[in-house]
Structures are given as C-alpha cells and as structure tokens.
Design a protein around this nucleic acid. Sequence first.
DNA 1: GATTTTTAATTGCATTTTGCAAGTATTTGT
DNA 2: ACAAATACTTGCAAAATGCAATTAAAAATC
Lengths: 148, 148
Amino acid sequence: MENIRELLQTTMIRFGLVDKNCCSINGIDISLVQSHILYEIDKRHHPSMQEIADVLAIDITTFSRQIQSLIKKELVEKRQSIQDKRVYELHLTTIGKVVATSINTQMNEYMKEVFSHMSEEEKETVIRSLSILNDSMAKSTMCCNPIR
Amino acid sequence: MENIRELLQTTMIRFGLVDKNCCSINGIDISLVQSHILYEIDKRHHPSMQEIADVLAIDITTFSRQIQSLIKKELVEKRQSIQDKRVYELHLTTIGKVVATSINTQMNEYMKEVFSHMSEEEKETVIRSLSILNDSMAKSTMCCNPIR
DNA sequence: GATTTTTAATTGCATTTTGCAAGTATTTGT
DNA sequence: ACAAATACTTGCAAAATGCAATTAAAAATC
C-alpha cells in the first residue's frame, strides 16, 4: 500500500493553490475560506449560519465574523428566520451571486485544464475515485462526524 | 462531467479534518502546517528552508517564523551549510523525529480506517487515481509552478 | 579583482485569522 | 413556570500571514 498520506497531502496543497488564485474578481478580493462560504450558500437553500459552519468545519465564532465581513462587502445578506428567531438565513446578494458564479466558472476552467492532462478514461476513473474516497471519509469516525 | 470542484473541495476539507487531529503527541502541540513541515524535513535529505517553503507553498517569511517556533520546541535544528553559508540545512532532532514518526503512524492509521470502507479493488483504483490527479496538477500551469 | 546582481534568510510592521470564554436571546423540554 | 439546550455575537489574546526592508553570502559581469 502506497503512501496515501503523502499523496493526499500534496494533492490538497496543490488544489489549495489553484483554489487561491480564484478569489479576485474585478476589484473584489475575498479569501479562500470566504469563497467556500459563498459556494455553500449558493448551493443550499437559505442555509443557517450553523449549517454552513458545520459543513466547512469552521468554528462558529470565526464563521460569525467571516459572515460579517462578507456582509460589509455586500456579498451576503442575513435574514432573521420567522419560524425561529435565533436563526439567521443566509442569502447571496446580486453581487454575491455574480462573484460566486464567477469563481465557480474560473475554478471549473482551471479544473478542466488540470484534467486535460489525462485520457478520457483516466478522467472518469479519477472522478469516480474521488467520489468513493469522499464517501468513505464521510463514513469515517476520524473526521466528518458533524460534516455531511 | 460532474462537479469536480465540489468533489475536491469537500475531499480537501475532510482530509484537513483528519489531518488536524494528528497534531498532539503527549504534551507536544503543533499546528497542521508544522506537522507538514516536519513531514517534509523527515522525507528529504537535509533540505534548505527555501526548499521546504516552496514545496509547501508557504511564504518564506512565514516559514522562517514557523521554523523558529519548531526550534524553540526543540523539534528542528538549523545548521549553516558549509558549501553555501547563506543556506541553512534543516534537521529533525531526536524528539522531532519521534513526533514526525508518531504523526505519520497516526495518519496512516486514520487513512487505513477510511480505506476500510472500500473494496480491495476500489482501494487500488482510488490510490492510482490520486497519483494521476497529482501528476496532472503538477503539469498544470494553474498551480504548482514552483511546486514539484 | 572589483562591482553589480541575485539568492537565502531574517526582522519590522500591520493586518487578518483563529478560538476559547462569556454573554444575549430564543426555543424546547419538563 | 423554569431549566436546559440552541443559535448566534462579542471580548479578548494568541497565532498566522505577507509585504517591505535589511543582512549576508554567492554568482555574474565588467
């Protein structure tokens, strides 16, 4: 069995680098974490703060501040839930949506480039493998207990 | 083509979580980044500072301070190179070596647990796929230009 | 052989990120 | 009605980050 730790570690670092390039959209600068937050809000239906913090495994207090920063940048809106007034629903603003989409397009572009170094068959195998790995991690007790 | 960005993103986050658990060895607490540094020093032969900073894509000034912190914890030693006095060779101390090995064992344990949710065939495919992905990223211009 | 340029590493800021402890407000359970 | 749990915020204080500037040594140029 090969050294999986190393493999995953360098893969992470490299993907992180690709990811980092993606965070400047005409004048609007956001951090890597913030791009992940935008992505998750975009993907879900009016999620709560806790929900996103859990998914991204960010401490809730840090998350609270990150959201404040995104609100100041007018990319995110917080709306108090009517059913449960403790909860705030997160929404992307129009600009936020544009930024999220823009980053996503960029990232897919980058990923396409990365995958262009593979054969069609390899490409499929790799994607399927990532799914399998991801699912296995989700099942693991080592991480991901709160993370779906 | 599936959403690769999402797949990689959540895989990264999950691996990062596993990775984070690994950094406390009987009283000695180190950060995730520091565990990566120990790993890379262990792996290479008396590397220079620049070398490791490049591999891990850490800014050299940040790296310099991280090394200082690891030296203070007596996990790492810096020895001025004789051939080129600008360069400092990085060495693990005896304790440093123990810590690095301990983290590595722990991580492999965790990884084994994660991979236990797969069939033998899947396991092989996943590992091979990660290799392919890694190589493709290395070839990419998007990241990894200084990173091998 | 002297001088310029490049390279390896450190230090000084100033900013950002982080997370624990403690707090408020609301809801749920008893 | 009251206790416990939940969602979120704020106050620190520590850690991490990165740019600009510096030192020291090596390599390149003249």
